[in-house]
Nucleic acid binder design. Structure first.
Lengths: 300, 300
DNA sequence: TTAATGTCTTTTATCGTGAAAAAACAGTTT
DNA sequence: AAACTGTTTTTTCACGATAAAAGACATTAA
């Protein structure tokens, strides 16, 4: 088993949804652009759609024969990237407890446990190392630094520095910039979510990320924009394991975002600074309270 | 050829130097700690030293028979890590010109050209990507963003943010902190270098890095400390290709460092801020003037 | 003559493998 | 018993190989 065809399977599923919506299929290059894959993959998808009787395919004519059924789709877990699989596995172990700071990380053991090759695990660890949670010992093993209070404090320190600067840059953007329209759209989504927060509170995390990424982009600095990956990753897993008062927390956060948006629209740098600080302070507080910190750092 | 024994060769060379200095060798574990390698490697080294008649080795007795000659050493280029080799090759191509922003990077071609496996090149590119000079297209090629003026500006923006904060943290450190002794030592080295700048100006870059790393460490923030890797990497190559007015530039920088050190020792935050700003401003200027920026960014 | 399809080539993603190096274990010496 | 040496096991590092996916080229339809 040298390489899974998850790109194909994922694109196939998305292709089915497209078929369901539009009841037709465009040309191969257009489909490729739409699904973000090459024509090679598109042709495999069309071939299967023909096989399963979804379409009649002859050159440029693609006649839709029937609507996709639930069992036409590939199972969700077969569409995951290897690195997603490894990341999930790794994070589960990391958050499951028993993962003390200072502990060694064994590539071979990880690979065996997840059932993948060592190369993929190595590449994952290298990519993951920029999050500051693990560290490599020169020609030896990796060391877990752990998701500690110190980590959270260092992370939020940078976050606050970067976001205050980005927010100020955002507010200084000229009237004609397209970001203002993006901000308006996000504001609408926030209002909608605020109204239905009782039932849709778990949709906040996705909105949160889009909002903050929009602001960070105003910095026009790749290091600031890239750093949001660290924050997004942490918050992604944080949301999964800390469900305490989720509804209340998110309700507060939506309100803070709306105030923050209003401040940005006012272009009053003082107001922007205040609204941004207030929101980041409560975000930091939420993150800090969710860290167990029962165990002390140990030497491995 | 599956893995070069550069760890052994490099440790062997360092072992020879140790032998030359001390005319004796300690126990295997102690040697391992001294050279930073495992006992397995130490034993290979001792075995070769015996073979070449440098020592008589019997269990814990290691009698030195003769002084190492020049031809006892392994050639310098056989002691390099694969990733060092790849990095040098890659940077040479990047700085050699003809490396336009937007250009594709081909793993296979790079691997063939350097004469290494694709895995090593992939891992190098992943590690290198955090410097912000290249970017990966999902299941496709890498794209060169290029060492442009924009890059330099984004880099220095973060650098200034981080260093101003670190310098303030440094100045606020209590009297008893060991960093003050480190600073005193660095100050001495600066004075010495200042006196002999006419001949030793090329030793500045190494001192520069140690000085700034000391300051950044005062932030106690892993993201700030790690970011200095980006700066160090850029300046390392920058020093290699921009030799114009090197002596003058370094003379100015040493003077700025001494003023900066004096400001830190005064613990006057205003003075620290001013000295730091002044030095970073001239560092940015030096970097910016060295960027050709003849070619415009192009699409690949 | 533009834009599609059909076919072939190249590159990326991933694995298994084997040597280098580390680490663990067992036996000795002081 | 503490610290060493001798031996064995495990892990890391790097390669070549192969299927998936991308990309390039040739051909055909509108």
């Amino acid at each position: 088993m040298s390489k899974s065809n998850n790109v194909y399977k994922d694109a196939y599923n998305r292709g089915l949804r497209l078929l369901d919506e539009t009841k037709s299929l465009p040309s191969e290059p257009e489909l490729g652009a739409l699904l973000g894959v090459s024509r090679t993959t598109i042709r495999s998808i069309l071939a299967r759609m023909e096989e399963t009787g979804l379409i009649a395919w002859n050159k440029r004519s693609k006649m839709v024969l029937r609507v996709p059924r639930a069992d036409d789709f590939f199972p969700e877990d077969e569409t995951d990237t290897l690195s997603q699989i490894i990341e999930r596995s790794f994070m589960r172990r990391l958050l499951a407890g028993g993962a003390e700071p200072g502990m060694q990380i064994n590539e071979l053991e990880l690979a065996r446990e997840i059932g993948v090759g060592t190369t993929s695990v190595r590449e994952f660890l290298i990519r993951f190392s920029r999050f500051g949670l693990i560290e490599k010992r020169r020609n030896s093993h990796w060391v877990l630094k752990g998701f500690t209070r110190a980590f959270a404090l260092e992370l939020t320190e940078i976050r606050e520095m970067f976001e205050l600067r980005s927010a100020a840059a955002f507010a200084a953007l000229p009237e004609g910039s397209p970001v203002w329209a993006d901000l308006d759209l996000l504001e609408d989504e926030h209002r909608l979510l605020a109204r239905e927060i009782a039932t849709r509170f778990n949709e906040f995390s996705e909105l949160d990320e889009r909002f903050h990424r929009l602001i960070h982009r105003a910095s026009h600095n790749r290091f600031i924009v890239d750093f949001y990956d660290v924050i997004a990753m942490i918050f992604h897993y944080h949301y999964q394991w800390n469900k305490a008062q989720e509804r209340e927390r998110n309700e507060v956060a939506v309100a803070e975002h709306l105030a923050y948006i209003a401040a940005l629209k006012s272009r009053d740098l003082g107001k922007v600074d205040a609204a941004c600080r207030k929101h980041l302070k409560s975000a930091r507080h939420t993150l800090l309270t969710s860290i167990p910190e029962a165990q002390q750092p140990q030497r491995g």
